[in-house]
């Protein structure tokens, strides 16, 4: 059984399942670091998945991916408008967006494809194979016929670390989430930073959705996100709001999902393996293992304190 658990096939599957969680979790980091909780990730993934499929169906996979990203950003803009400008509770807005996204996707699927639950098959980006490595048998499943979005996602981890740490934008974004009042007194436009953080997170979530529909499955399937937006949120919390941490958490969660999908163990019902990410997140936010350390002002809307 252990053999099977750590087989190359298994690893490849785990990595494929990691990607959507990882991408959305990276997005969540931008939003949360700017001070805004983004429960709407799930919805942004859903619209990303649908519109990517539609774009790919009509104009090919590259346009499809762009459509997915754009759809995520559009939904994110609503979140930004509602929470940053109108100062509505961030959770409420996120929940509403998830409802809205589910409705939009089913509605569009029915009226465009004539089917509520799936789209026709759509083409993805050309698959990649690293020839020399593919010769090595135990590496083969990992390096043959994989989506180009997989390496890109891992590159984006590095990019995120770099942006947050070494750019003016990253510094200001984090300041908006840690101490918006201080940022404001230093002449930083907190609202602009938060808009940026949320919309970037929408782009990432949209990309995650696009990966799911056109790269991973080859079509849009109703409910295909299966709460991955929430798992991404969990991965981000578990990774303590850092890109590297979120990457490891996403790998862990992807691995758990691969196990539950392949049902390689009957020792534990696969449904219980599926709940591992959720359980871990509850344990982390309850402070049982280590202190969870979110940005100081995440979740609170900023209002200028003029009397």
């Amino acid at each position: 059984m252990l053999n099977e658990l750590f087989s190359p096939d298994m690893m490849a599957s785990a990595i494929r399942l990691t990607i959507p969680i990882l991408l959305a979790a990276l997005g969540a980091i931008y939003s949360e670091r700017s001070g805004v909780v983004n429960i709407g990730l799930e919805g942004m993934m859903v619209v990303g998945a649908f519109w990517a499929a539609w774009g790919s169906f009509n104009y090919g996979p590259v346009v499809g991916i762009l459509f997915g990203i754009t759809a995520g950003m559009v939904l994110a803009s609503i979140h930004a408008l509602v929470t940053v400008t109108f100062k509505v509770n961030q959770i409420v807005s996120g929940v509403a967006l998830n409802v809205l996204a589910a409705g939009i996707s089913r509605f569009s699927s029915l009226s465009i494809f004539g089917m509520a639950t799936t789209s026709p098959h759509v083409s993805g980006l050309p698959k990649m194979t690293i020839k020399p490595l593919a010769e090595i048998s135990w590496l083969k499943p990992l390096v043959t016929e994989f989506s180009i979005l997989i390496p890109i996602s891992f590159i984006l981890v590095g990019v995120t670390v770099w942006v947050l740490k070494y750019t003016t934008f990253g510094l200001r974004l984090r300041a908006a989430g840690e101490n918006p009042e201080a940022a404001d007194t230093l002449g930083i436009n907190v609202f602009k930073m938060r808009y940026a953080g949320i919309i970037i997170s929408g782009a990432f979530a949209g990309l995650a959705g696009a990966y799911l529909s056109i790269e991973h499955t080859g079509m849009y399937v109703e409910g295909m996100t299966q709460g991955k937006g929430y798992i991404a949120l969990a991965a981000m919390i578990f990774g303590n709001w850092s890109a590297i941490g979120a990457m490891f958490a996403a790998l862990l969660f992807g691995f758990a999902e691969a196990i539950s999908l392949r049902r390689i163990t009957t020792l534990v019902p696969y449904q219980f393996i599926k709940i591992i990410p959720y359980l871990l997140t509850i344990i982390v936010v309850s402070g049982f293992v280590k202190k969870s350390d979110p940005p100081a002002k995440v979740g609170t809307n900023y209002e200028r304190g003029e009397g």
Partner: peptide, 17 residues
């Protein structure tokens, strides 16, 4: 498609808040 009502629900939440 009857899912237009789900869209309405989402918009109602947002507009009410």
């Amino acid at each position: 498609p009857m899912d237009v009502v789900v869209i309405l629900e989402g918009v109602i939440i947002l507009s009410i808040v």
